[in-house]
Write a protein that binds this DNA or RNA. Structure first.
Lengths: 220, 220
DNA sequence: TTGTCAATTGTCAGCGGCTGTCACTAGCCT
DNA sequence: AGGCTAGTGACAGCCGCTGACAATTGACAA
């Protein structure tokens, strides 16, 4: 990152990302052409595709950064923590560092709005879900290693991650469809969603004492 | 479905679907153009797009049918069954009727191979995951209604469905990457995956008695 | 039957995403 | 300074997809 060339490249990439996000959030994804983005940065369309494999990558770039950050955060948690606790703490504590990274490219507010665009643009949502599935796989491997398990032999790591991701996705949607909450609101929202996890899984759904929790059907 | 026109339409659609699946499974999704598919059925390219919103819809058509079938099957389960049991029985019992529907368009073997193509073609996998997410939402509503709950107020329906879907997806992948198993093999595989659900969630991961299951972290 | 209406299809033109190619420019290194 | 290479622009072209209009074909009543 020290040679002039490398700095220049980084600047063009950031500029493209910024221009893309600004256009996407202001006019929508479909109504924005790659040419527009390239022109805004004063670069040829061909160059855009040298930085991003597709139009969608420019749209998912920001989220991508935060996801990668999160996986790293989990990897860094002390190994004596139980799996779900490590995941939970990583997401709750990690928000600040995420803020930093995002802010180095665009104001955080744009990040929020970009998230909404992703959620309401079918092709972007699809790409996002695919990428999330990959991240889940990574997380499962991290968890398995922490617990000294074989990820292909024991289903529990993947299962735990699946449960966790389900909750996170629920929080995401709640937050992206609700009214505009600041970054701090997100932390609270996710924390609250995660707190509901245990009771939801273990409690009986109708009345106590009938033995109808997750246990029943699974053993049937 | 009784007028000549309607029958003709159905036949063209089936023919397009069949041709698409055959081409996709034999030469790959990317290396197959829409023109090829249309030519194989002796129809104009424009007509193809009157039946399918996009090239991907022709690829996901088969799976789409089975997913819809499955959601219906869950809806039809007796309401006294616990949620996860209803889901489980729907998938295990429902396989035969799925077979029927698929076989009316292409041999089941092609269904299996098409599934592999989807799994290894990024854009198709993405679209598939998105559609699956929608199905999950539907299922959550069905479950909520069975239990007399409000999906938006109570997180447990979505959570249960998320867990279940996680297991199903694990089974899907195991089956699509493994060696060629027949339709009966799939039933066994999914059943086995689902049987592991209860112990995996409730058991302790290292040794019994330390109180470190899903319960611990969720309450932290 | 036959004529009329509506549904389905083919043709054509065109946009936008994306890629290969090649010449050219600009940073790098000795 | 001058050769080398990474990065860029310009151009051509494929493919997915859409709108518009004309031609065809089945539906249905007179």
């Amino acid at each position: 990152m020290h040679t002039l060339r490398e700095r220049k490249k980084q600047r063009t990439r950031d500029a493209l990302l910024r221009a893309a996000v600004e256009l996407f959030t202001s006019q929508g994804y479909d109504r924005t052409t790659v040419d527009e983005i390239a022109d805004a940065v004063d670069v040829s369309q061909r160059t855009f595709f040298r930085y991003f494999a597709g139009k969608d990558e420019a749209a998912l770039g920001l989220v991508e950064m935060t996801v990668a950050r999160f996986v790293e955060a989990v990897r860094a948690r002390p190994p004596q923590e139980a799996p779900l606790e490590a995941l939970r703490r990583a997401v709750v504590d990690g928000w600040y560092s995420v803020n930093e990274v995002v802010e180095s490219v665009v104001p955080v507010e744009l990040y929020l709005r970009m998230y909404r665009v992703i959620e309401e643009t079918p092709v972007l949502l699809a790409a996002h879900l695919r990428r999330s599935a990959e991240a889940e796989e990574d997380l499962a491997r991290v968890i398995a290693e922490r617990e000294g398990l074989d990820v292909d032999a024991d289903p529990r790591p993947r299962l735990a991650v699946a449960v966790f991701s389900g909750v996170m996705r629920a929080a995401e949607r709640q937050w992206s469809t609700g009214e505009d909450v600041g970054p701090e609101g997100i932390r609270l929202l996710t924390a609250r969603c995660l707190d509901g996890l245990g009771p939801a899984l273990l409690g009986d759904w109708r009345e106590p004492g009938t033995g109808r929790g997750v246990r029943g059907p699974a053993q049937a």
